[in-house]
């Protein structure tokens, strides 16, 4: 059976998904990146190999997420795509009529508007990560509640209290203040969810028409409190897909399925999990820009380089990479 592998390496989680020819998920891995994307991909590949049925043959690979180039070089990607496109592809595959995609991940949040299956507008948070998964994670840890429980607490709230959500630093001091005043934990947590939703709608969805069906995906979609807060604010039903936390990887796999057609895949096989990848960074001395260039190496041989402004390091990587980057943007 032919399968397509999608890998989404983000700031917080690393997700791998294998889909079949129809686009259904055969297997998925969700694990924390823990700041080590190479290890996360290697371990993820290892885990995936053990769980896959024996008759699966990987016919195409796509990578996405902030470490898409790195993971693309490691596994031999057929397509390397930005996460906005990957999320849109996955959402419209699972809910074909989708017109709004809300995606909140570990460090970024996005809104994607589609009409008749085509992306017509999108926005992404800029410098500020207030209201994303990392902040919720941090608050859960501070309150001593497992992040998985966070949503249940929120749902038990009767009177949500007002939290300032414009900035995560202020939100935190506001929460501490409310705790000291004696507000109930549930109400503070749901108040936080509402603040994050307000912040999202004001920053990203500003002036955009949020038409149903609305799909909510990304790691934060697991939080039932966030779903409820969105539904209350928008007065609409929100759809959370079954595999909401790995939608980027599903999108990458779907893109690989489209990209591959009858070509042969570049996939290097699951053995990459046992290869020792090394990265090195150095300052290029070619000019006054002193770009910080990163090299990815195997046994001293350089697979690829990036980070230079002038592009001279990119061309010294393998030609396949250039071809992949080129075909990814065409």
């Amino acid at each position: 059976m032919r399968g397509y592998l999608g890998i989404d390496v983000g700031s917080v989680s690393t997700n791998l998904v294998v889909i079949d020819e129809k686009g259904d998920v055969i297997n998925l891995i969700y694990r924390r990146t823990q700041g080590q994307p190479i290890n996360a991909v290697r371990q993820g590949m290892d885990e995936l190999r053990q769980n896959l049925p024996n008759d699966i043959e990987i016919a195409g690979v796509g990578t996405t997420g902030s470490a898409r180039y790195l993971s693309g070089v490691m596994v031999g990607a057929d397509i390397i795509k930005n996460e906005i496109t990957a999320h849109a592809v996955a959402a419209s595959h699972i809910v074909p009529q989708v017109r709004t995609v809300i995606e909140i991940g570990g460090q970024d949040s996005k809104i994607i508007l589609l009409r008749e299956g085509i992306v017509v507008d999108f926005a992404m948070n800029t410098v500020c990560a207030a209201g994303t998964g990392s902040f919720l994670d941090h608050q859960a840890a501070r309150l001593g509640i497992p992040i998985e429980e966070f949503g249940h607490y929120a749902l038990r709230s009767k009177v949500a209290c007002q939290i300032a959500g414009r900035c995560s630093v202020f939100a935190e001091s506001d929460m501490i203040h409310k705790q000291q005043m004696g507000y109930r934990m549930e109400d503070i947590i749901y108040g936080l969810c509402q603040a994050l939703v307000r912040n999202y709608l004001n920053n990203l969805a500003k002036g955009k028409e949020l038409a149903p069906p609305i799909v909510f995906q990304g790691g934060v979609a697991a939080n039932a409190g966030m779903k409820k807060a969105f539904e209350e604010a928008l007065k609409m039903k929100i759809i959370i897909p079954e595999h909401h936390h790995v939608m980027g990887a599903i999108g990458a796999a779907l893109l690989a399925r489209t990209a591959i057609k009858n070509r042969k895949t570049n996939f290097k096989g699951f053995e990459v999990s046992s290869i020792d990848y090394q990265t090195r960074s150095f300052y290029c001395k070619g000019c006054e820009n002193n770009c910080e260039v990163v090299k990815i190496q195997v046994e001293g041989k350089t697979l690829a380089c990036w980070g230079g402004r002038c592009g001279k390091w990119e061309v010294q990587g393998p030609e396949e990479l250039d071809a992949v980057v080129y075909s990814s943007t065409n």
């Binding site: 902030s66 795509k81 930005n82 996460e83 906005i84 496109t85 085509i118 992306v119 017509v120 999108f122 992404m124 800029t126 410098v127 990814s328 943007t329 065409n330």
Partner: peptide, 26 residues
């Protein structure tokens, strides 16, 4: 696209790439 001395290349490239994808798709 807002530029300041802190703008990182990664975020900008992602946006521009997605914008171009969107236009090609249309």
């Amino acid at each position: 696209l807002v530029i300041d001395e802190h703008s990182g290349e990664a975020g900008m490239i992602t946006r521009v790439e997605a914008f171009i994808d969107m236009l090609r798709w249309r």
